[in-house]
């Protein structure tokens, strides 16, 4: 119960700080954000776009962990949990793609230009899509659970290639790429103390929100399955 209040307060604070704190050339007071050359006012996206992309990855990690657990214990509830995690991950993945694309229009001049980051989020979308396609193609609960677990584990071992290796060895415009000189590795150097604090707070808030959504999602799915079994 207390964590719900905590989430409420935290997210409200993040919204207020992230949207209204001014970006100035020379940060003086505690609420000033520094000006990052090449990003300027666009830099505020970091408080809302990065957490969604982060959640898309976390959700995928959760789906994989519960898939492994399913393969070990053969408990159908674990499959439901993995499935719900993937569902919510899909939502956040779409959100990250759309917000990133809108931002790219104003920061880089076009909605989509196959930057390595854009390629990797697109691949993540494809993986989620393939997972749902596979689930709808198999009949039989246990078979579906096994096949989708195996597929999500295999897909997960390729994810590090997308998220961590490719954007860093390939050239790109996204902050944090290999040849990024003007905007630098944003998290480490160009953000000042209070910007970092707000950024991490927003990561925490979004993560809690994700777990709540996931919790509600899988509980309702389990009840639905249980009721269906009683009726049949």
């Amino acid at each position: 119960m207390a964590w719900k209040v905590f989430l409420f307060v935290l997210m409200t604070l993040v919204c207020i700080a992230g949207i209204t704190f001014p970006i100035v050339r020379e940060p003086v007071t505690w609420y000033d954000f520094p000006l990052i050359p090449g990003l300027e006012e666009n830099a505020k996206i970091i408080f809302f776009h990065v957490p969604t992309a982060w959640l898309a990855t976390i959700a995928f990690l959760m789906a994989t962990l519960y898939s492994i657990k399913y393969l070990r214990k053969k408990d159908l509830d674990d499959d439901v949990k993995a499935y719900t995690a993937a569902q919510i991950g899909m939502i956040f993945c779409v959100l990250a793609t759309v917000t990133g694309s809108v931002w790219a229009k104003f920061a880089w001049g076009s909605f989509w230009n196959w930057d390595p980051r854009e390629t990797s989020i697109f691949a993540l979308l494809l993986i989620y899509g393939a997972l749902f396609a596979l689930r709808s193609a198999v009949d039989g609960d246990e078979k579906r659970a096994t096949l989708s677990s195996v597929y999500s584990i295999i897909a997960f071992v390729t994810v590090p290639f997308f998220i961590f290796i490719m954007p860093r060895i390939m050239k790109g415009l996204h902050p944090g790429s290999a040849d990024d000189t003007n905007a630098g590795p944003v998290v480490d150097f160009k953000m000042n103390q209070n910007m970092q604090v707000v950024f991490y707070l927003s990561l925490i808030a979004f993560t809690i929100l994700y777990f709540w959504m996931w919790n509600v999602g899988y509980r309702s799915q389990i009840i639905k399955d249980k009721l269906q079994k009683q009726i049949n």
Binding site: A123, I127, G129, A130, L134, A137, I154, A155
Partner: peptide, 30 residues
């Protein structure tokens, strides 16, 4: 391994490239 998954699933023909593409993407790009 994708072929093994496919052989147990329903619609075999169309699903194969759908499942294999995201897995092969890092390889193909590199």
């Amino acid at each position: 391994i994708i072929a093994a998954i496919i052989s147990k699933a329903g619609s075999k023909g169309t699903l194969y490239p759908v499942l294999a593409f995201p897995i092969l993407l890092p390889l193909i790009l590199t």
